[in-house]
């Protein structure tokens, strides 16, 4: 192919968009709407999973020791705990730290009364290890191990929470994968329908080109290029809109709901759009390319 022909076909692809502006706008709107929905859903799901992950990270098992055990033996057990695969972190809490925390949490404004009533630390023998898990699903096996350790008096756990988190997380993964798949299928259907409609209108144009000796390639390139450009624009618009909306919502929620800061750990825009931008662009361009390629092929057998 000559360079001049190459540029001519590119020029035609761009010109096609403007010649068929209503069809182009309809296609761009369809792609944008589908990718916008996909983007919203992805942002919601990934934030929900981030919140769950945050909760999972906060899930811990507390290990209490026999009352007469010295700190060195406790640290020895701590080393054994940290060596386990299930453990992400094991934090030692002394008796004094336990008492301080109880005072703060429960008697914040009556601290002085409390100190008078309890001149000695009443939490003797309550030194413990707070053990954080890598995965709440591993809690059962870890607890069994901890309970088997000599010198361990009690292991506090919340099987219910762990199982709920595991269940919810799994359910969300399945549902979101399903919905994303459905959204993509619907998008492909809608977009290829729009492309089909647009090309049917121009079937005559393709026929004319073929009758006067245009090769399949020569006919196809402007249409495919048009499809790619429409897909690209259709992808850029929702990404741009979503970025601004997401940023705004994030700012609003973090300012208004500071109380829930410990719970609502939202993903920063950069993290969401690091995935969403390339995926949306690839889906938009891919659908534009495939839609036009396949649909033009149908009309090339002239």
């Amino acid at each position: 192919m000559k360079i001049s022909t190459f540029f001519y076909t590119i020029k035609q692809g761009i010109a096609n968009i403007f010649h068929n502006k209503w069809y182009s706008l309809a296609s761009i709107a369809t792609i944008s709407a589908c990718l916008f929905l996909f983007g919203i859903f992805y942002a919601l799901v990934s934030n929900f999973q981030s919140i769950l992950q945050n909760l999972e990270e906060k899930l811990c098992v507390t290990v209490f020791f026999e009352e007469d055990m010295d700190y060195d033996s406790m640290q020895e057990i701590g080393r054994m705990i940290r060596a386990r695969d299930e453990v992400s972190e094991a934090r030692f809490v002394t008796e004094d730290q336990v008492w301080e925390s109880v005072k703060q949490d429960w008697f914040g404004d009556r601290m002085e009364e409390l100190e008078e009533a309890y001149p000695e630390n009443p939490m003797k023998g309550e030194a413990n290890f707070e053990v954080f898990l890598k995965d709440p699903e591993m809690q059962e096996s870890l607890v069994a191990y901890l309970e088997s350790l000599p010198g361990v008096r009690l292991v506090n756990k919340s099987m219910m929470t762990a199982q709920t988190l595991v269940g919810v997380n799994r359910m969300i993964s399945f549902i979101s994968a399903g919905i994303i798949l459905i959204l993509l299928v619907v998008s492909v259907f809608l977009i290829s329908n729009t492309v089909t409609m647009g090309i049917s209108v121009r079937k005559e144009e393709i026929n004319i080109m073929k009758y006067i000796g245009a090769t399949d390639f020569f006919v196809r390139v402007p249409f495919v290029l048009e499809g790619i450009l429409i897909g690209l624009v259709g992808a850029v618009i929702p990404v741009f809109l979503l970025y601004n909306i997401y940023d705004g919502v994030l700012r609003f929620v973090t300012e208004r709901f500071q109380v829930l800061d410990w719970l609502l750990k939202f993903k920063p825009s950069a993290e969401i759009f690091r995935f969403l931008t390339p995926v949306s662009l690839c889906v938009g361009v891919g659908i534009g390319f495939l839609g036009s390629f396949i649909t033009v092929r149908k009309h090339l057998r002239v």
């Binding site: 005559e204 144009e205 026929n207 004319i208 073929k210 009758y211 006067i212 000796g213 245009a214 090769t215 399949d216 020569f218």
Partner: peptide, 17 residues
């Protein structure tokens, strides 16, 4: 395509772009 380039074709309905 190459074969058709040796032909000139005219239709009743003109078939212009």
């Amino acid at each position: 395509a190459k074969y058709r380039r040796n032909l000139g074709v005219v239709f009743q309905d003109f078939r212009l772009l």
